[in-house]
Amino acid sequence: MTVTQDLEIWTLVVNASIVVKLVMALLLAVSFMSWLFIFSKLFAIRRARAQTETFEREFWSGNDLNSLYQGAVNNRHTIGSQERIFEAGFREFAKLRSQRGTDVTTMVDGARRAMRATYQREMDHLERHLAFLASTGSVSPYVGLFGTVWGIMHAFRGLANVQQATLAQVAPGIAEALVATAIGLFAAIPAVVAYNRYSHDIDRLAIRFESFMEEFSNILQRQAGR
């Protein structure tokens, strides 16, 4: 083991053993991915919330359901999750109503099932990558710790060969090993924070969708009874 006199971060990384280097590379990649998802999720959730608010305002402003449905079908690539749920439920409802002889309960149930299916799909999309953030948050400290333990083992093995052991002989090895833990924590902490924050945001959105589904079912039932 070389005893480096100047402890610069780059020398530390370069002098690390191959296992520690691999761990660092893995952690850097994981960290990059987790930050990528943090930002993309941040934008996606913000957008979903804004779209939901816009649609709710539109929906409760007393517009005609048919015109709302037509607008949703026309812009189907840019509409938000709630509008998609509305679109699916209303389409199913309209389809069932066009068939003669279906009673009100069947119509409403069918619309509800369609909405539930779209809701599940939308939730799945919103929650995508959250699992990655969760596992990054829980696993990357351990991966970093593994790199550190390996590096310290390496440092102490080098120490065993010398007659007079000084701190200067182990310090660089331990420092370079600790870089792995630092990277692991750097990846983990934002991932955990983002995971908690985003799952909370998504839960709130889900509650909003579900209550919308219930209210819309009531509206459909009233419409079917007429």
Partner: peptide, 14 residues
Amino acid sequence: EHYEPSFVPSAALA
């Protein structure tokens, strides 16, 4: 098909 316009800015920010 879900429109994801945020990939490139997210990568740049990361």
